[in-house]
Amino acid sequence: MRVYLPATAAVLAALREARVLGPAPLRAYAVTDDVRADVPGEDEEEAEFLATLAAARESVLLLAADGSAPRRVVIAADVSTARPDDDPARGAGAVLLGEEVPLARMASVHADEEAAEQAVAAAAADPTEERLDACEEHDLLWWATQELDELLADLGGAHPDGAGPE
């Protein structure tokens, strides 16, 4: 099952060092029956896009807590199981993962480019629906997990000794 995990630059830096995202439970989004119900007649790609956007919104909420660059970050990963998250505030597609996710199970990372920083910073400071919607005017860029060092450098979190992941 493909899941989309909300993250930040600080989360990515910790992931680079530990090679695993955790501890469990981890909050994520997936294409669930309730997501499919929200987009009847749409294909799987559109449903995955909605799950990614939900994770990106949650990423904005994480920014205030960790002081990362004001850019949304979403990690796409393949996991064997996820259970529905019954928290109504999280919305359609919200799931909980009962295990840590190793870097090897991650398919890609999606992150804002620098042009989104003003909108994302405003939404992180005051997450109104209008400000969260404004973030969605910016596309998330696709990064391979092998490009984690380059992405962190772009986000302002380059490896301190210039070395990449082992």
Rank of each mutant, 00 (worst) to 15 (best):
29 Y>H: 14
124 A>N: 10
112 D>I: 03
70 P>D: 02
15 L>R: 08
128 T>S: 15
46 E>Y: 14
83 R>H: 08
122 A>T: 14
10 A>L: 07
76 A>Y: 08
106 M>V: 00
141 L>M: 09
162 G>I: 09
50 L>I: 03
116 A>L: 00
85 D>H: 15
17 E>A: 14
51 A>K: 14
59 S>W: 02
23 P>Y: 14
166 E>W: 13
119 A>C: 09
60 V>D: 03
45 E>R: 15
78 D>Y: 05
112 D>L: 04
38 D>A: 15
111 A>W: 05
96 L>V: 11
17 E>N: 09
119 A>T: 06
8 T>D: 04
126 D>A: 15
148 L>R: 01
76 A>V: 04
50 L>P: 04
146 Q>A: 07
126 D>N: 12
14 A>W: 07
133 D>K: 12
153 A>G: 01
131 R>S: 09
76 A>P: 03
165 P>I: 00
22 G>T: 05
120 V>S: 10
22 G>P: 08
67 G>S: 06
27 R>A: 13
70 P>M: 01
133 D>N: 13
39 V>Y: 13
107 A>R: 15
130 E>Q: 14
140 L>S: 09
26 L>T: 06
18 A>E: 14
136 E>M: 10
93 G>N: 09
165 P>T: 05
147 E>H: 04
22 G>Q: 07
97 L>H: 05
3 V>Q: 11
76 A>Q: 13
87 D>A: 15
23 P>E: 15
107 A>P: 02
31 V>P: 03
24 A>P: 13
61 L>Y: 03
85 D>R: 12
13 A>K: 03
131 R>I: 03
58 E>W: 06
134 A>R: 15
42 E>Y: 05
59 S>A: 08
144 A>K: 10
21 L>K: 12
99 E>R: 15
2 R>K: 13
29 Y>C: 04
103 L>S: 05
108 S>F: 12
100 E>F: 03
35 V>G: 12
47 A>R: 13
112 D>P: 00
104 A>E: 04
155 L>G: 00
3 V>P: 05
19 R>Y: 01
155 L>H: 02
58 E>N: 11
91 G>N: 14
88 P>H: 15
164 G>W: 03
161 D>L: 14
152 L>P: 00
44 E>P: 01
3 V>C: 07
121 A>V: 03
36 R>N: 07
164 G>S: 02
107 A>Q: 11
87 D>H: 12
91 G>T: 12
164 G>C: 00
115 A>D: 07
118 Q>W: 09
45 E>C: 05
20 V>L: 10
1 M>T: 05
69 A>P: 00
92 A>G: 12
3 V>H: 10
115 A>V: 05
76 A>W: 06
62 L>D: 02
80 S>E: 14
83 R>Q: 12
91 G>K: 11
160 P>N: 11
148 L>H: 07
53 L>F: 09
69 A>S: 01
28 A>L: 04
19 R>D: 00
166 E>F: 12
